[in-house]
Design a protein around this nucleic acid. Structure first.
Lengths: 274, 274
DNA sequence: TATTACTGTATCGCCAGTCGATACACAAGG
DNA sequence: CCTTGTGTATCGACTGGCGATACAGTAATA
């Protein structure tokens, strides 16, 4: 079974609903809702449609409980049976939620035309991502004219510690928070050049801080070069990031920075503080 | 507040979780899960970030209950507060679910390269949509070179009764089911030319049935022309649809059909019965 | 043909957990 | 001042969900 993303591109470190989060000492915390979402998020990183027991295991719930919740979610359209291979998969109803999320997101709406402008200028892949603790989640993704497969990876999460956009985000955080993010990341060595040393990463953040953007070479995928900048809100806190990605075979880092950097900074500053 | 979709493009007939669905006579139906999803789907068609009371009203739940569920979903990242305007909006965690849904969908994976091929041939917007009862939900959407805004409307639902893709879907259903879908649709007159008569719609379906594709002119938006074909599974039931959309100013219906039809049929048949 | 290990599905009693009433602090607008 | 909206918190009554337990089917062992 092929996948819409190459194997190397599937990061599993998206944060699932953790078991410990349930049963917390919070009178307002309704466990049933958490259980429901645990079931829904049981599909994280799954390779195949999942059987009931697999869902239960992934959700950390009893098989009986899982059964009833799955049954309910199925009736509501949030879970379906896979038509061929037997097993459960997320249902179409989910798509409604993502559409609502994008529609109500104050950042995405004004960003789209600006991203299109940027793409027109630089003619490489342009991404807008939102920040989720340790990772960036693609919210919009414009492929370059030269089409690659990644047309629709909205929802994919990439780590902050080893991406250009992530470094740009770090540069806008107070130092202690930035270091905290880095430390809590499980720094995997995706390529030989992936930075995992805290100081090295902070140095990249510093670079982003003074230039407004920062370039990452081969951090997640060999042969890939990225340039990223962070979007901040009215309080100056980072809320999103934009990055442009290209192939190292087409650019040197210096050329890439000179060609794309200014346009990127301009796009980001148009979105800042809104 | 601008929106990522023009006002005329926001169909509200996406099916929310209905109140009647809760409290049904089903011992396996867990109400708490339904309540949770009612809260999550309360954002359907919302124009602004919603206050607690608005969420409660939209979800059809008590304010207290809503409060606790929102509280929980917020801790889990499925709901956030809008940073500027006060109010709740769907959280980033939602994006994980959509990504899982797409990744585990057996149809989307093999479809992407085929859609790219098709787009390369016809050079107009190409959509893949999944069927959700009365509507089609965009699952992949490839904009044409000539960029329009609609870069990322994954998750948008459009009605079946008045779209080319929808007619193609109808053509693959048994007649009684097709008529049932049409009757249950609340047939709105989007444009002057929108078909709302059952027989007229069935005729379009018949056209789709013999040609393999069908053309729709100005059904949802003035000036828009679309051509659609349905994808069927091994049992011959429709599971998805592909449509190509262009501007009436660029094509006559006949030209459009001759130019795009064969390529579309070929793409669809490559996806059929898998 | 048993045996085992999976599926998905169904039933039911007990008691944990949720509902919803009720209340409070605060802000905006008349 | 009152009124009407926020968001948040507390708590007792009672319901509704948990999870043990069971069963039919299927597929891959022996």
């Amino acid at each position: 079974m092929s996948d819409i993303t190459p194997r190397s591109l599937r990061w599993r470190d998206s944060a699932p609903v953790r078991d410990e989060e349930i049963g917390r000492d919070d009178p307002l915390f309704v466990r049933a809702a958490a259980r429901t979402m645990q079931v829904l998020s049981a599909f994280h990183g799954a390779e195949h449609p999942m059987s009931l027991s697999e869902v239960a295991r992934a959700a950390g719930l009893d098989r009986s409980t899982t059964q009833r919740i799955v049954h309910t979610l199925r009736q509501l359209g949030y879970i379906q049976r896979d038509p061929r291979d037997s097993g459960y998969v997320p249902g179409i109803r989910i798509y409604d939620n993502i559409f609502d999320a994008m529609r109500l997101n104050r950042l995405i709406q004004p960003a789209v035309p600006l991203l299109l402008d940027l793409r027109r200028n630089v003619n490489e892949r342009v991404d807008l991502s939102l920040i989720d603790d340790l990772r960036l989640v693609y919210a919009a993704r414009l492929p370059p004219k030269r089409e690659v497969l990644h047309a629709m990876l909205v929802g994919l999460g990439v780590p902050i510690y080893c991406t250009s956009a992530g470094w740009a985000v770090l540069s806008r955080l107070p130092e202690d928070e930035a270091r905290d993010v880095i430390r809590r990341s499980d720094r995997k060595q995706y390529t030989a050049r992936t930075l995992i040393d805290e100081e090295a990463i902070m140095e990249k953040a510093a670079e982003a801080s003074c230039q407004g953007y920062v370039i990452a070479e081969e951090q997640l995928l060999p042969g890939e070069i990225g340039i990223g900048a962070a979007v901040v809100n009215a309080e100056g806190r980072p809320v999103a990031a934009i990055n442009v990605t290209a192939l190292l075979s087409d650019w040197t880092a210096e050329e890439f920075g000179r060609a794309v950097g200014p346009a990127l900074v301009q796009t980001v500053s148009a979105l800042n503080r809104r």
